[in-house]
Amino acid sequence: MTLLNIVDLNISLPTTSGIVTASNGISLEIGQGETHCLIGESGCGKTIVALAIMRLLPVNAKISGKIFLNGVNLFSLSNKEMRQIRREQIAMIFEQPQSCLNPVFSVGSQIAEAVKIRDKCSAKASKEKALELMRNVQIPDSHKRYHHYPHEYSGGMAQRAMIAMAMALRPALLIADEPTTSLDVTIQAQIMELIKDLVVQFNTSLFLITHDLEAAFSMCGHVSIMYAGFIMEKGTVENIIKSPKHPYTKALLSTISSEYSSPVRGMPPELTKLPAGCVFHPRCSNAMPVCSKIDPQMEKGVRCHLTMKI
C-alpha cells in the first residue's frame, strides 16, 4: 500500500541571487514499511523536497503539485491539521543534530516534550517514556544524560537523541535528511545501523536523503537519483546497481566501483540558472545534439534521451 505519494512536485524559492528551482516535476512513491532513498549531490534540492513533505518550507516558497499521505493531500490541510500530521504521522531528523536541539532546554526534556504531545500523557509518564527511548537509541547513563544540555552531547549522541525524539512520535514515515553527514565515520555506521533497526522495530517507512551511495544501498529497497532538482532515475536498489540506465547514475556508481569507468566531469549547475534541455547534458559524456534542446521525459524510471529512443 502506498504511504507517501509525491506527484509532480515543483518548488521554487526566491532568493537574493535569483529564483532557485529546487524541485522540478518530482514524483515518487513510498509504500508502507518501505525504505526509499533519495540520492544526489549537495545542493541538488533533496532537503527542499523533505521540507516540502513536512510543510516546513519558508512562506515565500512557490509550490505546485501534490503530496499524498495515506491518500490525503498534505497541501490541502490547514496548519492545525498539518501539525497533527507532524505529531502523529511523519517525523524528521536532520543533519548537524547539535544545532537542531534547543540549547537552553535539557535534551531529556525535549524528548519528553515529543512524548507528551504525541501521547498526551502526564509529565511523569512522558519522562519515563523518554528515558526508555533514550535507552532504546543506546544513550548510555540515560538517567544522568536526561538532564544534560545539548552542548554536553557529542554529535553522535545528539543524533541519537534526535532519533529518540522522532521515535517518540511513533511515525508512519521517518524522514532522515543526511543524518550522518556531520558525524565521524565510525559513528556514521552506528547511527545508520540504529536507524535501520528502529525502522523495523517501529514498523516505520523510511525516506532517507543522502549522498552516501553505500549507506543508501545497504539501507534501502528503493532509490531515486536526483540531479539539479530533477529525478534522473528511480527503481529498486538491485536494478539500479545491476543495470543503471542513466549516464549520471553510471557516473555515480563509478565512484564506488571500478566497473563503470567515467567519473563525472565538472560541477553541478547552480539552481538559479539551469541549462536548457536535459540539465545533465553539459556534464554528460554521452550527450547528443537533442540533449541541449529538449528536456527528456521520465519513462520507465529513467529521464534520458538515450533510453527514450529505444
Binding site: A91, L101, I117, M165
Partner: peptide
C-alpha cells in the same frame, strides 16, 4: 531561523 526552531515545528508543536 535556527535549526532547533525547525525541530520544534517538526515535532508538531503549535
Amino acid at each position: 531561523n535556527k535549526n532547533y526552531i525547525r525541530t520544534a515545528r517538526a515535532k508538531g508543536l503549535n
